[in-house]
């Protein structure tokens, strides 16, 4: 599997699939995410409410909510 994953209790990120477009960062209502070296990074996981807006609009399927 082509993956380099960051797994938290709330979100999973696959950095190998992320192209750094910033869509998830922009539309996250709780400002959980940021970009670092053109890849998505979790900035503050405590604020995540698992609304799934990131997963809904990630064109690369590189981020998703866990346990839903």
């Amino acid at each position: 599997m082509n993956s380099n994953e960051t797994v938290t209790e709330k979100l999973t990120i696959n950095e190998n699939w992320c192209k750094g477009c910033g869509i998830c960062v922009k539309f996250c209502p709780k400002k959980v995410l940021g970009l670092e070296h053109d890849k998505v990074k979790i900035v503050d996981i405590d604020k995540c409410i698992q609304c799934g807006q990131c997963e809904l609009r990630c064109p690369d399927y590189a981020i998703y909510v866990r346990g839903k």
Binding site: N2, N16, W17, K19, C21, G22, P59, D60, A62
Partner: peptide, 10 residues
Amino acid sequence: LPQIWCPGCG
């Protein structure tokens, strides 16, 4: 995957 579309393509 990953798909070949450009970064941020809808």
